[in-house]
Amino acid sequence: MGVIKKFKKNFANFFNKLFKKQNARIGIYGPPNAGKTTLANRILRDWTGDAMGSVSHVAHETRRARRREGVTIKANGNSLTLDIIDTPGLATKIDFHEFMEQGMDETESKRRAKEATEGVIEAVKWLENLDGVILVMDATEDPFTQVNVTVIGNMEARTLPLLIVANKVDLPESSPSTIRDAFPQHPMVAISALEGKNIDTLYEEIAKRFG
Rank of each mutant, 00 (worst) to 15 (best):
I26D: 15
I26S: 15
I26Q: 14
G30S: 10
P31C: 10
P31Y: 08
P32N: 06
A34F: 03
A34Y: 02
G35H: 07
T37H: 04
T38K: 13
L39P: 07
N41D: 08
N41C: 10
R42Y: 14
I43P: 13
L44Q: 08
R45M: 04
R45V: 02
D46G: 03
D46R: 07
T48Y: 09
T48H: 11
G49I: 09
G49M: 09
G49C: 08
G49H: 05
D50T: 14
A51E: 12
M52R: 08
M52C: 14
V55G: 00
S56H: 02
S56T: 00
H57F: 00
H57P: 03
A59R: 01
H60V: 00
E61I: 00
E61H: 06
E61R: 02
T62Q: 02
R63D: 03
R64L: 01
R66H: 05
R66M: 07
R66K: 12
R68H: 12
E69D: 15
E69V: 15
G70W: 15
T72N: 08
T72I: 11
T72V: 11
T72F: 02
I73A: 07
A75Q: 04
G77P: 00
G77S: 04
N78W: 01
S79I: 05
L80A: 14
T81E: 13
L82Y: 11
L82D: 10
L82Q: 11
D83V: 09
D83Y: 04
I85Y: 08
D86T: 04
D86Y: 04
D86C: 05
D86M: 03
